[in-house]
Amino acid sequence: MKPAPFDYRAAHSVAEAIRLLGDGDREIKVLAGGQSLLPVLNMRMGHPDVLVDICRIPELGSIDVDSQEAVHIGAAVRQAQAHADPRLRSGWPVLTEAIGHIGHPQIRNRGTVCGSLAHNDPASELPAVAVALDAELVARSQRGLRRLNAADFFDGPFSTVLEEDELLTEVVFPRQPAWSGSSFQEFSTRVGDFATAGVVVRLERAGDVVSAARLVFFGVGGSPVRVAAAEQALLDAPVTPSSTAAAVSALEEQLDPVGDIHATAAFRKELAAQLAVTGINQAWERCA
């Protein structure tokens, strides 16, 4: 299991990276942490002509909080770096929790936050977090810059709306409002496995009632699955066993997971429902 030949280019600036990506004649892959790409290359399931390494671009290597108190995570930021960041831990705790579920420490030391988003493995954690937290993804190419809502970014298993010549340069998580709370819940067979099913819940509270809700599932569809009907069921009421039950009953119709060798569709759906209950309750408790 050795990769087929390819050319490797280390970009030292975003401008250089997008210029390299703009070469339409060759199949070009962005190399960030490589923790998903390298297994594919080692197994010769991909044959890119060129890898463009973006981890040597200084401007992509930092985590910054802007004047709006949104956090910008550059494309070269490793998962471990984000996981250890105290600002993320306090301001966006579900992101920290979700990163803690990715593989093992040795994987997170190389893997990047943006790489997980751009790869969009259906069982991976971060795309769901991005959707639940209304993240914005910034894509740049020689043609210009696009700001994409996470809700519009993921368009199928291992697929996003990024064009071939576009580089995802950063992900921006907006400040989480006061009186909001989130929860990350995942079930996997072994520690470190991809999720059998998981959910990210985000609630906002106005007085005693839920004023906004996000329920975004992963591992149960080709992409993060947001279930609007379940969210609706939670609105304008406090979180109670009956509102939670109403939300969960909406999942029955809305979720349509695929079964595989590790879990049947029915089991994934059942897990999703159980995790949603835990997640809703935890998110509500955190709405303080």
Partner: peptide, 10 residues
């Protein structure tokens, strides 16, 4: 596995 036991339980 959880999946198989859950199916048996169901």
């Amino acid at each position: 596995t959880p999946d198989r036991l859950w199916a048996l339980l169901r």
